[in-house]
């Protein structure tokens, strides 16, 4: 029902590809990250709340059709519906039903709270294809509230010492999650300065606001705003911006990274930032197990990351029928 082809996951009964790797006739796109949404297909189906973001990525003219979460759409012999994945705004799990047999492709997802995305919806199915970016039990996410508390304390400390706070996270998804998560702190009057955003982050904010996501007031980083707010600002930027000459205009900085990889000390230290915050938009080990349990699936396929270890665990310890799926070039 879902098979792997050179162009990515394919559902023959519906003649549709999920997050295809190259241009196809009909694509279902789970979310707007570059390794899932690629240009050039004839027709895209996506969750309505994610269409704005997808347009930023695929272009205003891209033939994207949005459907509300939960709406059942008949395609050929299959009934297809999209359900919240909680990864970023409008990210979807794909549910495919053919003659009573149900498959679910989770796409990227997380189960921890995120003020900038819908809440993950557990789905029942016979076969589950789940992402497995963090497929080891060492990856267990702390409560995001606590992590935001750490970030806020760090900002206050930096401001007290006259250092600009540079917080790095992916420009799509993580950055907006950080901003939305800081809203209560800013509204409560705790913020020691202004929030500045890198252009790559700023560009995406309207697509979020259009879906009703609330952010604290922000200004785009420029030579002028950087000078004006030097020493007290919190700057949200993509990780690629850290370590470039761009940082210099912020004056003395303390650099932090928000990512699931920050769970490991060695990674944290190698990142050569000052702080690492464990905040991931992917599912952790416990979440993966919960998703599998709640799905009731007898067959589980895993994709992305260290799938071998998790597959062995599911086979040997849980007695499940398992398989690995390579969905990216270079995945094994």
């Amino acid at each position: 029902m879902v098979i792997r082809t050179d162009a990515g996951l394919y559902v023959p009964e519906a003649d549709v590809y999920v997050d295809p790797l190259r241009p196809v006739h009909r694509a279902v796109v789970t979310h707007g990250h570059a390794d899932h949404a690629r240009r050039g297909s004839d027709h895209y189906l996506a969750a309505s709340s994610g269409v704005g973001i997808l347009r930023k990525r695929l272009g205003d003219e891209a033939p994207i059709e949005g459907i509300p979460f939960g709406e059942r759409r008949t395609l050929g012999r299959a009934v297809l519906s999209l359900h919240p994945a909680g990864h970023i705004l409008g990210s979807a799990q794909v549910r495919i039903e053919v003659g009573g047999e149900v498959w679910v492709v989770t796409g990227d997802y997380k189960r921890t709270p995120d003020a900038s995305a819908e809440t993950f919806e557990p789905l029942r199915c016979h076969t589950l294809i789940s992402e497995c970016t963090f497929g080891l039990p060492i990856y267990r996410w702390p409560e995001p509230d606590g992590v935001f508390g750490e970030i806020e304390r760090w900002w206050v400390e930096n401001a007290a010492e006259g250092r600009t706070t540079l917080l790095c996270g992916y420009s799509l998804g993580k950055a907006q999650r950080l901003l939305a998560g800081l809203l209560p702190f800013v509204q409560g009057g705790g913020a020691p300065g202004t929030i500045l955003v890198h252009g790559a982050v700023d560009e995406l904010l309207p697509a979020y606001r259009a879906e009703g996501i609330a952010f604290p007031p922000t200004e785009r980083v420029s030579v002028e705003t950087a000078r004006e707010h030097r020493g007290t600002a919190l700057v949200v930027a993509p990780p690629s911006a850290a370590g470039t000459a761009w940082v210099r205009k912020l004056g003395p900085v303390s650099v932090g990274f928000a990512s699931g990889w920050m769970r490991i000390r060695g990674r944290r230290r190698r990142r050569s930032g000052d702080r690492g915050f464990v905040l991931s938009d992917h599912v952790d080990w416990d979440g993966l197990m919960a998703t599998i349990d709640e799905s009731g699936a007898e067959r589980v396929g895993l994709t992305h990351g260290q799938t071998g270890t998790a597959l062995r665990y599911l086979t040997e310890e849980r007695g499940l029928d398992t398989f690995a799926i390579a969905t990216r070039e270079g995945d094994t």
Partner: peptide, 13 residues
């Protein structure tokens, strides 16, 4: 967790 899984984690960390 089974011991082999602990070992794999150690290998990663």
């Amino acid at each position: 967790y089974p011991l082999w899984l602990v070992e794999e984690c150690y290998d990663t960390v």
